[in-house]
Design a binder for these strands. Structure first.
Length: 689
DNA sequence: TTTCCCAAGCTTTTT
DNA sequence: GCTTGGGAAA
């Protein structure tokens, strides 16, 4: 019997049913972005203009207007950023937003490839190579090919891989790149190009992908398999891309593919904050966006809610020094505030003590530690400070330093897991075979050939030529691997099978500091416990590297959220009540290396701009007058050229002195008279650091 | 072929 | 301060 079901009429105005008062909670510019119609939208957002907040509301708005959350894709620069944004969006909307797909380009591509990799000749369980794995591959090939036999210097494995990667990300051939930017290797163009193609072949042969492969193989998957593109892009009803100024050519092409079915893309960026040129990022992507997408609506966010006017004035001043002109002047809603300080310290120790004491004072005043950040150009710039912080018992996390998965002993353990996941993973095999006594590069290579060419069960020793020198060790290894391969073993059980096997090796290999490394392993085991599948765990380690200090800080202080130490790059998108920038020296920021790069100085300047605009209330830029270099001794350093000749109404000079020598250099006391300017060496004599 | 030892060289920013 | 490469002994 046929029936008729009568639908009730839909309410004419959906807005009355929104749970969020968008117009009330956002300014008109933000509101325009959040409620923008379908189609391509480009948002030019200055620093501190509530970009993140706007994107969060946009996601919520889309969900409220009926877009299925799983058809929204939010591409961000780090997974941390994605998780934070989706968390906040979920908070706005009773958890519905948690089903939004979010992550980095790399993690999104990984998801696509895990499904479609066989279409382009890769196994689904391909392994992901990090930079040092990739360098290991290059090393194996280079040794096998005997390239380093020449009389001149052949590039090192890391340089080689960096070269391959740079060529790919800039869409030029390795040969062209060498001639244009690395003339010192020009004598080896043919050899290096050979190696590059061997590297590619090796990855295909053993089912391996490096970071670049994740992007470019996904792109080529879309380009050559239209049904896949249709399917994937069809599931992306809305694509939102954060930090668009830091996308490279590949990523921009991916965005075009993802939006090719529905055409709903929102890209958000700020060309003045482009700091990834070294990785092939092309800030021009922002300006090319309207050409790439017909009918692009361009919207702007200009009101700064983060920083006080004095901090913005400094930022505005600094950015005018760029070669390239930026059409930017930031205005704050917060008019009042302390002047940014340019703090001169005698040396590293003074600088560190100044920062620690100031932090303690701020904490006294009620500023939580995790609202304070110390930023620096390079991870090692903070060594002295870290010692001093430990002395003062100030807990901290450091972002941008050594990652958990970069530590050799962690990489070893991960290698066992990787083999269990992908038994053809030659890099992982190489790594763990070399740990066996009596096995060197040659034997390892031979064994890998046997193993990979072998039967379905790669962990059989029978019928394989092997020497008694390492037979017993190999048998033990295979027994262990077979145990963790067992389908019943949970991830935690697998790791608990590995550790007793690996500990003797660890003890032997790192006898001096093995207890410390053992501790890392314990953290690692604990971390593994939070994952359910081995493949998720491995992917997360590769794509969302965890800071070594993050685990330590967590273990050490449950009571107080720690201070943040971070490279400027890793602080992108974040904001803090108080920001310290240390080692603001010529040669550090701008980095010595940047002088050789075309456009390098501007990028360093933008880096300073990013650092400055992280601050809400207080900004202290400090530098030591005397630096020490082993092999050179002590020498005078020079503060960053970017702050030369700034008026005192823009940045206030401070001097740090020992108690008794002069009034303490702490507010509200007026800053003491500056020391006589140090005798700077001539630019010619100036050392890189 | 492996392993040990010593000298040389280099040292940014990230997925 | 650390990795990397070369050379020589086992």
């Amino acid at each position: 019997m046929a029936r008729r079901f009568v639908l009730k009429p839909q309410p004419a105005d959906l807005s009355t049913r929104f749970t969020i008062d968008y117009a009330g909670e956002l300014n008109p510019q933000q509101y325009a972005v959040v409620t923008a119609a379908d189609g391509p939208v480009l948002v030019i957002a200055g620093a501190g203009t509530g970009k993140t907040r706007t994107l969060i509301y946009r996601v919520a708005y889309l969900v409220e207007t009926g877009v299925p959350p799983e058809q929204i894709v939010l591409l961000t620069f780090t997974r941390r950023a994605a998780a934070e944004m989706l968390g906040r969006a979920s908070g706005l909307l009773d958890g519905r937003c948690s089903r939004v797909r979010g992550g980095t380009f790399h993690s999104f591509c990984l998801g696509v490839l895990r499904e479609y990799a066989p279409r382009i000749g890769f196994p689904r369980n391909f392994s992901i190579l990090d930079a040092s794995d990739a360098a290991d591959v290059v090393d194996v090939l280079r040794t096998a090919g005997g390239y380093h036999k020449g009389d001149k210097r052949f590039p090192r494995k890391r340089s080689l891989h960096a070269l391959f990667s740079a060529a790919l990300n800039r869409d030029v051939s390795v040969g062209e790149l060498i001639l244009s930017r690395f003339p010192q290797f020009a004598g080896y163009v043919n050899e290096i190009e050979d190696l590059a193609s061997q590297y590619e072949a090796y990855k295909v042969q053993y089912g391996l992908m490096d970071y670049d492969d994740l992007l470019r193989r996904t792109l080529s998957l879309f380009e050559h398999h239209d049904d896949v593109r249709q399917r994937v892009s069809g599931s992306c009803l809305h694509v939102l891309v954060d930090e668009y100024q830091d996308t490279n050519r590949l990523q921009a092409a991916l965005v075009r593919q993802l939006a090719s079915v529905h055409g709903n893309v929102m890209a958000v960026g700020d060309d003045a904050q482009s700091i990834y040129g070294f990785r092939g990022a092309e800030p021009e992507n922002i300006f090319a966006f309207p050409d790439d997408f017909n009918g692009t609506q361009v919207l702007k966010l200009e009101h700064n809610y983060r920083s006080t006017q004095p901090i913005l004035s400094l930022a505005n001043h600094v950015i005018t020094k760029a070669e390239q002109k930026y059409d930017k002047t930031l205005f704050s809603e917060k008019k009042q505030g302390e002047l940014p300080a340019l703090v001169q310290a005698a040396d590293d120790r003074f600088e560190s003590r100044f920062i620690c004491q100031m932090i303690l004072q701020l904490r006294e005043e009620g500023v939580p530690l995790n609202r304070i950040a110390v930023l620096f150009r390079s991870a090692y710039n903070s060594y002295h400070l870290e010692t001093e912080l430990n002395r003062c018992n100030i807990p901290f996390v450091k972002y941008g330093g050594l990652k958990l998965n970069e530590a050799a002993h962690i990489k070893d353990v991960v290698a066992y897991l990787r083999i269990a996941e992908n038994p053809r993973d030659a890099v992982a095999w190489n790594r763990i075979l070399l740990l066996l006594p009596g096995v060197g590069p040659k034997t390892a290579n031979d064994l890998i050939q046997w193993i990979v060419a072998g039967s379905e069960d790669p962990f059989q020793l029978e019928h394989r030529p092997f020497s008694p020198r390492y037979a017993e060790a190999l048998r033990e290894l295979f027994d262990m691997l077979r145990a963790i391969r067992s389908p019943e073993a949970t991830l935690l059980q697998q790791i608990e099978t590995i550790t007793p096997y690996y500990e003797p090796i660890l003890k032997q290999k790192y006898y001096e500091d093995y207890p410390k490394r053992l501790q890392d392993l314990e953290h690692f085991v604990a971390l593994a416990g939070t994952f359910s599948s081995r493949s998720d765990f491995l992917a997360s380690l590769a794509l969302d590297p965890i800071e070594l200090t993050a685990l330590e800080a967590e273990a050490a202080s449950k009571d107080e959220p720690p201070l943040v130490l971070s490279t400027i790059h890793s602080a992108k998108g974040l904001e803090f009540h108080t920001v310290f920038l240390l080692h603001a020296l010529d040669g550090v920021l701008p980095s010595f290396y940047s002088l050789k790069e075309p456009g390098g100085l501007d990028e360093e300047l933008r880096l300073l701009y990013v650092a400055i605009t992280r601050a809400e209330e207080n900004l202290f830029i400090s530098y030591p007058v005397v630096q020490y270099r082993r092999s050179y001794g002590e020498y005078f350093s020079r503060p960053t050229r970017f702050l030369d000749n700034l008026p005192e109404q823009i940045i206030e000079p401070w001097t740090v002195v020992e108690e008794g020598a002069a009034p303490p250099a702490l507010p509200p006391a007026p800053p003491p008279v500056a020391l006589p300017a140090p005798a700077f060496p001539d630019d010619d004599d100036l050392l890189p650091f």
